[in-house]
């Protein structure tokens, strides 16, 4: 039957997206919320609703510690990545004619899988790894450095490397969008290069910095692979605990609760960050 009204056309056009979001976002999220109010009783699930999971999760110092550490590591990763990405994006946007080539080079690490890249860092930083054996071979150190791997540092370094292109691209786009005449106008009005950067370029790229930061921060808080492989004991994050609940511990309701707690925490931190940067941006005169 042909579509007759605008309404039915609209519904038909919207259907694929509705279906997609419904099946892949709303349904899993709903299940997660439902599970978080249920209870695991050995092999079966008790479907009566209870706040008990939340009470015990929030009351557990380990959960609070891991959640705090996850946010802390993610914040470090975000800060480091954005600070390193900005000059690279600036170089591509303003200082080179071969933009396409540079952008291509930056995406090269993405041609291999994420897991392989994490393993590559393990090979570089390990006890008998590239760095240690190389430095030993050169006679610069006498015994392998053990502080390189299985700690917070290794997690931050690996994640910062993994996320670099994601940070560079949004900042590059916001730099590229700046009308060059605005920079000339600032110069014309007496600004030197540094003043011009802080009063015109930087405030105009705040949207790019915000999207870079969120793109890195949000998935990093919940990252599971990197801390598991290079994090060691004091590099573990909240996602590792969640994995344990869904795996070995077989306590899905608690796992669901932890996931939702992590989501809410990320949400609060992200909104606070956006508001803070916007406020700082508006203070620049």
């Amino acid at each position: 039957m042909p579509l007759r009204t605008d309404t039915s056309k609209g519904l038909a056009l919207g259907a694929p997206a509705t279906l997609y979001v419904g099946l892949l976002v709303v349904a899993p999220l709903g299940m997660l919320v439902a599970y978080s109010f249920w209870t695991q009783t050995y092999v079966a699930i008790d479907h009566s609703l209870t706040w008990e999971n939340y009470r015990s999760a929030i009351g557990d110092p380990l959960v609070r510690h891991l959640l705090f550490r996850s946010v802390w590591i993610a914040a470090l990763v975000t800060l480091m990545t954005v600070l390193l990405a900005y000059p690279i994006a600036y170089f591509i946007a303003f200082r080179t004619e071969r933009k396409a080539l540079w952008l291509l080079l930056i995406t090269i690490p993405f041609w291999t899988s994420y897991l392989l890249r994490v393993f590559a860092w393990k090979l570089i930083l390990g006890f008998n790894g590239l760095l240690n054996s190389g430095l030993q071979g050169l006679g610069l150190i006498h015994e392998p450095m053990t502080w390189l791997l299985y700690n917070e540092f290794a997690v931050v370094l690996t994640l910062a490397h993994a996320w670099a292109p994601f940070a560079i691209l949004p900042i590059y786009v916001s730099l590229q969008k700046i009308d060059r005449r605005l920079l000339e106008a600032a110069t014309d009005l007496g600004s030197g290069k540094l003043e011009r950067f802080f009063r015109v370029t930087l405030p105009l790229t705040i949207p790019g910095i915000i999207s870079s930061s969120l793109i890195i921060f949000i998935p990093t808080v919940g990252d599971y692979v990197t801390p598991a492989l290079v994090g060691g004991a004091d590099g573990k994050m909240i996602a590792n605990l969640i994995q344990v609940q869904f795996g070995p511990a077989n306590d899905w309701p608690l796992g669901a609760t932890l996931s939702l707690l992590a989501m809410v925490t990320v949400g609060i931190v992200a909104v606070g960050y956006v508001l803070l940067l916007r406020f700082l941006g508006s203070r620049i005169r």
Binding site: R181, L182, E184, L189, S191, L204, G281
Partner: peptide, 27 residues
């Protein structure tokens, strides 16, 4: 930035992140 000249640009080049007062007071 050190010449006693000022310019009105073709597309005006008004700073989009500043209000009118801050644009005019920029220099």
């Amino acid at each position: 930035n050190r010449r006693p000249t000022n310019m009105v640009f073709q597309s005006y080049a008004i700073f989009p992140h500043l209000d009118v007062g801050d644009n005019v007071g920029f220099g």
